[in-house]
Write a protein that binds this DNA or RNA. Structure first.
Lengths: 178, 178
DNA sequence: AGCATCATATATCGATCCGATATAGCCGGC
DNA sequence: GCCGGCTATATCGGATCGATATATGATGCT
């Protein structure tokens, strides 16, 4: 799904500024979607000229003014329509797996450092997800999507931890990097 | 990692044409990287003008001629250098999780169809990975990267299957879509 | 006190990448 | 006999990322 429609989705949860939309992605949705400012701000402008959102400006004390966007009726039905036509596709880009794939070109120390860094990253992501897992009032689908993210990340952790020592051992004996 | 350097990586495994590079990604590496022709062909041209690859043309009977690329010494060391500076980052974009997140806006039938389609997709990806898992002669890192992909996909399958009926049940009782 | 860094909030811009499209001949199936 | 799929090239528009810019306040470190 493109950034425009993703923004419609977040606005479906409540009015928000571009900055707050980004925050929502970072905090709760980053394990499956995370568009940048460079696509969010132009998207909001296009949504406005398409009539799917309206803008109001909210001045703040000692802060830059917010431009808060709200869904229109058309925007709401547009999102429902897009959602019902969206295919459940998943795309992963992992430089970690890439590094593992070419590990024979690295030293064992480098490989060990990479794996360790990866473990740390997953652990941090996991904590972020577990922090929002506690909420009681979520629809079953939202709960499922968070639990899904946690489960998959835990599977990664478990697999890496289980095979780490064997990987490093075999790597050492396979031959030093050219 | 960008497409240029990814191509260097594949060429590190052996000479190949642009088409064959794409095939390699589709067959063995699609679970973590899968650049398109639209970035591969321009990348190969840039690699050539940078002196990191050389091109030779191989005519074929009743087929378009191949442009086969080979790594130069500079290309080889360039890849080693890039590899040792690459961070083990992972980025996922999942429209499946997105659909789950907004499932309260869909009917239970729609949700059931989406989950089923997702299961089918994972099963097919899994078969593709398991087909190359059998090879005996792979370096430990390559084996690890394939096993990692399989394990994570199996974790997805397991989780979805386990929670499917409960999700649909709760979804039904949560309220019909607006 | 002074300085750096982070958070809030906007926005743009170049580089990159995807997805669709075009071309073209062969092969296999219905 | 034709339609779709495979081999093989390539381009182009649009979408997206990542870095950068601007401005101010709060926080924290030395």
């Amino acid at each position: 799904m493109n950034t425009q429609d993703l923004c419609l989705g977040v606005l479906h949860l409540g009015d928000a500024s571009g900055y707050e939309i980004k925050q929502t992605f970072e905090r709760a949705l980053s394990h499956f979607q995370s568009p940048s400012y460079g696509s969010i701000y132009p998207a909001l402008r296009k949504l406005q000229s398409a009539g799917w959102v309206t803008q109001r400006i909210e001045d703040q004390d000692k802060r830059p003014a917010k431009k808060i966007y709200s869904l229109t009726h058309e925007g709401r039905s547009r999102f429902l329509q897009v959602l019902s036509q969206t295919e459940p596709q998943e795309i992963c880009k992992s430089d970690f797996v890439l590094l593992a794939f070419f590990a024979h070109l690295l030293s064992t120390d480098q490989l060990a450092a990479i794996v360790q860094q990866h473990l740390n990253t997953i652990e941090m992501d996991l904590e972020k997800l577990q922090a929002i897992q506690g909420r009681e009032d979520l629809p079953p689908g939202m709960r499922f999507s968070i639990d899904y993210g946690i489960e998959v990340k835990q599977a990664r952790l478990k697999f890496v931890r289980k095979h780490l020592s064997r990987l490093l051992q075999e790597h050492q004996h396979y031959g030093d990097p050219a």
